[in-house]
């Protein structure tokens, strides 16, 4: 038996640009309790070193698609977060004036995240989610509704949202670090865009997890129907992430 020679058919590449669009899935690295800090990631050299004259190859189609949907989801998520805090603040501050500075602090951080992702979307020509108006209404309703249920419920909402979001960012950071590692193994320069994005995502994730801790300190777990509320909000977040990744 002759071994079948491997056909050299450059024409196939041209006719079939991609038969196997396998996207890197975000394996979410879950964070279930506030005290569990995210597991340590490897810190590749590229994150510290500055650019050197090395070869560099363009991101693959799958990588671009991943970044496209990841940044779109993050933008939608931060939009929702700012709106939740905006809607929660008046009723909460009215009944608990001492929480004014905390609410303002969390809102200001979310607003800065939202600006960051808005700029990234415009810069990298990424389409914002088509569900923009829907998320606006849904997030405002969620924030106002939980604030009306009282301080504990509002904090339980914050806790549930930030748990999901923290895990979500963590998954993205892992995927990006995997790319960085692969690029380094191949001896390529990683490029400022990706390293900067990893740094931004890590910073934002840590700030979201701070909100989670603050919410738990404010008796989030004492809310009436805590388990139910937590389940509902978290599955709502998961659904919203799923939709925003796609449309």
């Amino acid at each position: 038996m002759h071994p079948i020679p491997r056909l050299q058919t450059p024409i196939f590449d041209f006719l079939l640009p991609s038969l196997s669009p396998q996207l890197c899935r975000v394996s979410r690295a879950s964070i279930t309790t506030s005290t569990a800090s995210p597991p340590p990631e490897s810190s590749p050299q590229a994150l510290q070193s500055t650019s050197k004259a090395q070869r560099r190859r363009p991101l693959s189609r799958e990588q671009k698609q991943f970044l496209d949907s990841a940044l779109r989801v993050n933008h939608a998520g931060e939009l929702a977060a700012t709106l939740i805090y905006t809607a929660q603040t008046p009723p909460i501050v009215k009944s608990h004036p001492h929480l004014r500075s905390l609410m303002h602090h969390m809102y200001a951080q979310e607003a800065s995240h939202f600006t960051t992702f808005s700029n990234l979307l415009a810069k990298h020509r990424i389409r914002p989610t088509a569900m923009y108006p829907v998320w606006t209404v849904a997030a405002t309703a969620l924030g106002w509704g939980t604030a009306m249920m009282g301080r504990e419920a509002a904090m339980a909402c914050t806790e549930a949202v930030e748990t999901e979001i923290g895990g979500h960012y963590n998954g993205q950071v892992r995927v990006l670090l995997k790319w960085v590692k692969e690029m380094e193994d191949r001896g390529e320069e990683v490029g400022e865009e990706i390293t900067e994005l990893v740094r931004t995502l890590k910073r934002i994730r840590d700030e979201e997890l701070e909100h989670l801790d603050e919410a738990v300190e404010q008796d989030a777990k004492n809310a009436g129907g805590y388990t139910f509320l937590n389940r509902v909000v978290r599955s709502g977040c998961k659904g919203a992430i799923w939709i925003s990744e796609r449309i």
């Binding site: 189609r61 698609q65 990298h124 865009e193």
Partner: peptide, 17 residues
């Protein structure tokens, strides 16, 4: 995974590098 065919435009992440 999110299919590119669901979106209206297939233009994705634009890199400057």
């Amino acid at each position: 995974p999110p299919s590119p065919h669901l979106v209206f435009t297939k233009s994705t992440y634009h890199s400057y590098e």
